[in-house]
Design a protein around this nucleic acid. Structure first.
Lengths: 155, 155
DNA sequence: TTTGATTCGTGCGTGCACGCACGGAAGTCA
DNA sequence: TGACTTCCGTGCGTGCACGCACGAATCAAA
């Protein structure tokens, strides 16, 4: 009854790695009154400014609903600006404020030690490979709405 | 100014992969009124029963405070039992209830399709390597309380 | 056009991610 | 046998992870 342990390894290793990264990042960025996820959002805006909320959510692999809540906070803190879309009255465009741009420069430097630690244990080839494997795993899961298999129906 | 994009790839790929896995798992297990993280907790209990809350938290790479909240819910749902520790009056032992054991058997099967999708894109060697690389990254971050570098001090 | 299906953002509810502070028990050392 | 330190669990607060339902605007046909 121990094949479970082996086949569980990949999900657990993925979970452990992500949570560790998130924890360390949160602790580091907390010195600047910013969360790890807010950093991801700001970084996404840093290049590719003035996109819609949904576009932003898609690029950072998050839920539009989650992104909205984050934007409300970040806007209150003056790091982000939301304006009406020029052609689509439903959408709003999101952009870094000037304060947000300055803040992000600081945050980027603050995050350097974490990136160094992550890449430090890996050779260049290993890092490339890891990124590629993670991407493949992601894509295998993001299946475009495969309708539930019959055998998966709940009884 | 585009080296940022490259050096950000690993963190973003890790984030994307974990969130994708979590989303898909949550959706799948929701059919059984269980969350993805509850599944991880139950799986951790499934082998290695009757450990303390802290031990449980450690094994599933979670925070003891988080685990406690989850246990309160799971206990209310009758999947888990908490008893006093035989020798340590501070601690409590956690174990699967019989209902919890039965539920987990179902959940394990329900998760099979997700595991298959993840492993499906990888050869046996690639899967092994991915797990090892993820483990190395985790360990590089779990640094046993390295005191903050002087250059990292906030001004 | 008017109908109908999509898409954007909002608002709400639940659960998980923590950190932090508190009280009580355990272990240490004088 | 006190006094100190460490460790376990609890309780509270904040932010992120969603899903779902709603209103409004857009777009596609009819």
């Amino acid at each position: 009854m121990d094949w479970k342990a082996n086949v569980s390894k990949l999900p657990l290793a993925l979970r452990a790695a992500y949570l560790a990264m998130h924890r360390v990042s949160d602790a580091q960025f907390a010195k600047y009154n910013v969360t790890a996820d807010q950093f991801v959002l700001l970084a996404t805006l840093d290049r590719g400014n003035a996109m819609t909320q949904r576009e932003l959510a898609s690029r950072m692999s998050s839920d539009p609903s989650t992104v909205r809540a984050m934007l409300v906070l970040l806007e209150k803190n003056g790091l982000v600006e939301r304006n009406i879309h020029p052609t689509d009255a439903r959408a709003r465009t999101v952009a870094l404020s000037s304060a947000g741009k300055r803040k992000f420069q600081l945050l980027w430097k603050a995050g350097e030690s974490i990136r160094d630690r992550m890449y430090g244990e890996l050779s260049v080839d290993e890092a490339k490979l890891l990124i590629e494997l993670l991407t493949r795993v992601s894509e295998s899961l993001v299946s475009e709405r495969v309708p539930a298999t019959v055998s998966e129906s709940v009884q």
